[in-house]
Design a binder for these strands. Structure first.
Lengths: 189, 189, 189, 189
DNA sequence: AATGAATGAGCGTTCATTCAT
DNA sequence: AATGAATGAACGCTCATTCAT
């Protein structure tokens, strides 16, 4: 997992894996029938970290913009923590985008899983926006759907920048970036 | 170039290249000392398509929001045209993100070039926003810097979605998507 | 046994064997110290099916050509039955020649055992021919030794063809082929 | 070719080939895209040695049994010479049967080619028998078809024995064996 | 300028075998 | 008696690169 995230799927060889795990090739093949299988299981295991449960409860917390921001950042912090605990590391210099693209290239079903997850994310944001609208915290004439879409794209685009800047302490950066983007978003609308 | 964009850097072999170019390996090595050099030259040649000149003239065209949208889309259309003409193709099913990441991984200086280009893009948007502000077309209290940043992230995040959906006619899709994102943005603010 | 006959020695892996036997590798190694030993024991067990007893009694049955043919085909039918009962199968699509060659290549003593068996087979045919000669059923001037050798080669050559044609119901085919060859032989002489 | 005939297809590794040819793996892959292709080309090249031309002229030589025997042995001698010249060797301890079975297992079309060749062989013998019959050198009531079939099986079966005895000087043995079988055959009928 | 034969390190994978439990 | 985790050599194959011509 650590190797895949650091170097991408293709660039990881069994030689790398055996050195890192201190196991022989045969031992790894004993548990994973192929490199692709290794990827798929890794991918799905990591994706679990991003899966949200109790979104209804989270949406219900939204009373005003500050409460929404707090809730959203808390949720993201929890996801990050789960992600790093699955990695068994406090932090890791990695390239999520490369890993995702190679994973989807290698095994197309993973693309559908990701697309699904993203749809759920937008949907969740839409429900939050509706909640804010109920409390009249969003200017009239702006529909929750568009707001959710716009915020989502903004968050996604912001995150992209991280991989170009390659910062060292990504865990903190993520949250700081999310916060900055939320602030910016609510300043815009 | 076409091969790199379609399959990514690593996945392209000299065998692929010789078949496509109908040249021998030796001939290619005669002009490009290594595969990395082939990548760098390709990358920089393509990046030229995204380089904007006369941004001052473009910014000067901005009088109101519709004029800004028209100008921006025209500029993007020109970039796309230039991009495809460099490719010597009308369109190409490709994966820009994979190509960029692999290119930057392979040769870090390319990352700085891209980062530079992106900064110029945000800067350009900022100047457009200032222009709109001058004409009082943007609500008071929203600073051009943030607006530019937000719009840029939104555009970038929106574009990302394209690679998951893998649309066939990307040239048209790009412009449609940019238009949609601009509309959405001005609806939000 | 079934696997060796179907796929040949080399092509059978312990993975194949554990799946078929539902035993663990360790269990198989507990009884057979190596793959070669597995082969040798299998081979010798199968060869037992071809071993004839009471050849004297069989030869004594020969009174005329029809009685010889009947006796010979009965004997072969019994061998086939014994062979399939050792296999615990009614029939099996297999390649005897590949199995024999690989077995002999792997462990040369098996070659001597087979050669011995074949010599006994020719010898048995020779004694039958002598019996027929006693009853003056064979033209004068044809010695039993040559007749036996000729018939044996004919039977062997005929059998060879089976592996190229790869018939489904080999058990029946064998007997039909033996019968056809015997008829042809006695028509020739 | 030499390696395949000596050890069989499966047992030959690229390591063997590179040592024998003093070429690198890459050089071999430069000319043969796969091991299977190496086999098929070898097989077809060797099979060419067995292909008979001018069978009509050969059949026309048949006037009596001695002339048939001479012609047949001359033809076989020429085939053997062609075979060894293709091998670039005077003689080679080899296992034709293993090579043939593995070749056919690996690429089924080779089986059809061999079956075709064998059919032509029987057909050639049948025409020779008809010629002998015309000269009344074959007892009445024995049809050329059966005689050809019987002789063919006998030759084939006789040849089989060679691989078990593994004689050193196979080239001479072949011809001696063919001669012995022909003599035996004409003694029988 | 251009060819393509040749190299050899490295890849993912299979395999018979060992051994602690 | 029986398990299955672990090994490491060997396999067929791909690749960027070199170089004599």
């Amino acid at each position: 997992m650590q190797l895949f995230l650091q170097k991408g799927y293709k660039a990881v060889s069994y030689e790398n894996i055996t050195r890192k795990t201190r196991l022989s090739k045969g031992a790894i093949y004993h548990y994973f029938p192929s490199k692709q299988d290794l990827l798929v299981q890794t991918f799905e295991f990591l994706l679990e970290a991003a899966r949200q449960r109790d979104t209804a409860a989270l949406v219900a917390e939204v009373r005003d913009i500050p409460s929404f921001k707090r809730m959203y950042l808390r949720m993201k912090a929890r996801q990050l923590k789960s992600f790093y605990s699955r990695l068994n590391q406090k932090q890791l210099q990695f390239n999520k985008v490369l890993f995702f693209i190679e994973a989807i290239n290698e095994y197309h079903r993973l693309g559908e899983i990701v697309a699904d997850l993203l749809r759920q994310e937008v949907d969740f944001l839409r429900r939050c926006m509706e909640e804010l609208k109920k409390h009249r915290l969003i200017p009239a004439g702006k529909d929750p759907e568009s707001l959710a879409q716009g915020l989502f794209w903004m968050l996604d685009g912001a995150e992209n920048m991280l991989y170009i800047r390659k910062s060292r302490d990504q865990a903190r950066d993520y949250l700081a970036l999310y916060k900055k983007t939320l602030d910016l978003f609510f300043n815009l609308i």
